[in-house]
Computed example of a mutant assay.
Amino acid sequence: MALRKIQTLWHQATDAADKTATASTLRSRPLLYPDEIVVEALKLPDDKARELLINETRRPGRELVPLVVALMPTLPEEGLRLLHLAGITYDIGDDPRIADTIAQVQRYPAETWRGHDPLRALLRNASKRSDCGVHLIKTLMKRNNTAAVENYLKTYAERTSAWGAAELVRELTKARGLHPVIDQFLRMVSEHTPRSLAREVPEQLRQVGRRREARTLAGLLNG
């Protein structure tokens, strides 16, 4: 009975997605996910659900975003949960896959998501580790996806600790070609990190040897 109910919801979601998403988008990215994947992913613990999603999205003809698009009109929170799980990264090797998913999300029309912000759901946990973040930023910049880089930096700034912000700056200074991103991130910290935390970041930057960045951020916070 539960499976029949899920199957009914699945067909309703697919029909609704056909009406809300543009015909050209759906023709280019058909909804190929079977409902069994939805059932299994939503009842597993997060780490197992993530493993299932990664394994399934690596199969030919199966992508994560079309599934989420199908779910959003009738089950938006579950659709966002799947995107959220896709953003959980423990392995640097997952970053290209996440970058691909980000690009897919951005290609779908805004009305498909019914007022939700799937990109923020996707980036929420990807911003937990500065070493993975640098690799993700590199991948996004190579693909000229500057909008996603800015969104990532904003999400990181909103969720980070003072030490986490300083650590990301230090990692960015080590990476070749990412120095322009540093000042962009410092601006995000000044605008989006809770002020009490943001005021601690310059001292953390000095402790990791980034005095120029500490002065820049202090100027932004006092400006």
Rank of each mutant, 00 (worst) to 15 (best):
P109K: 11
Y152P: 06
T139E: 15
A21K: 02
P60L: 11
A49E: 07
A17Y: 04
A175N: 01
L122N: 03
L119F: 08
R176E: 14
E200I: 01
W113A: 02
A70V: 01
H116M: 01
L197I: 14
R120C: 08
L31N: 08
V68I: 07
I88N: 05
I37M: 13
A175S: 12
R211P: 01
Q12N: 08
P118L: 03
G115N: 06
T173K: 14
R107G: 13
V201G: 02
R212G: 08
L123K: 05
E78L: 12
I182V: 15
V181K: 00
L221V: 05
W10H: 11
L53H: 09
R50I: 09
A148Q: 09
F185I: 06
E167G: 00
Q204P: 00
T139D: 14
L44E: 00
L220D: 01
G133I: 09
L53C: 06
V208H: 14
S130E: 12
G223H: 15
P30G: 09
T22C: 01
R206C: 13
V65T: 15
K128N: 10
E150V: 14
L178H: 12
Q106L: 13
F185R: 03
D100Y: 10
L217P: 04
L67N: 01
S161R: 10
E40R: 14
R120I: 09
Q184D: 10
V38A: 11
D100S: 14
V68F: 03
I98T: 11
I137W: 03
V38M: 11
S161I: 00
I102H: 08
T193H: 06
S24H: 11
A165F: 07
L67V: 02
L80R: 07
G223L: 09
W113C: 04
L31Y: 03
Q207P: 00
T89Q: 14
L153M: 09
K142P: 00
P109F: 12
L52P: 06
A103D: 09
R129D: 15
L221S: 06
A214V: 06
P118A: 05
D15A: 12
G164L: 02
V68L: 06
A99T: 01
K19Q: 12
T57W: 14
R215W: 02
G177H: 07
H135P: 00
L122S: 04
V134H: 05
T74I: 13
A175L: 02
R29Y: 12
R59N: 04
M141F: 11
Q12M: 10
V105C: 05
G223F: 13
T112I: 00
L9S: 07
E191S: 15
R212S: 08
I102R: 04
M72K: 01
E171C: 09
P202N: 01
H135M: 10
L140E: 04
P34K: 15
M1Q: 11
D94W: 11
L9V: 00
T74W: 06
N55E: 15
R129L: 05
L123G: 03
G79Q: 06
A21V: 14
Y90W: 13
E36H: 12
G87M: 02
R58Q: 15
K154D: 03
A166V: 07
A175G: 02
L3A: 13
D100G: 12
V201N: 02
K19V: 00
A70L: 02
R159L: 09
L64R: 05
Q104S: 11
E213T: 04
Q104H: 12
D18C: 05
P194I: 03
G133D: 12
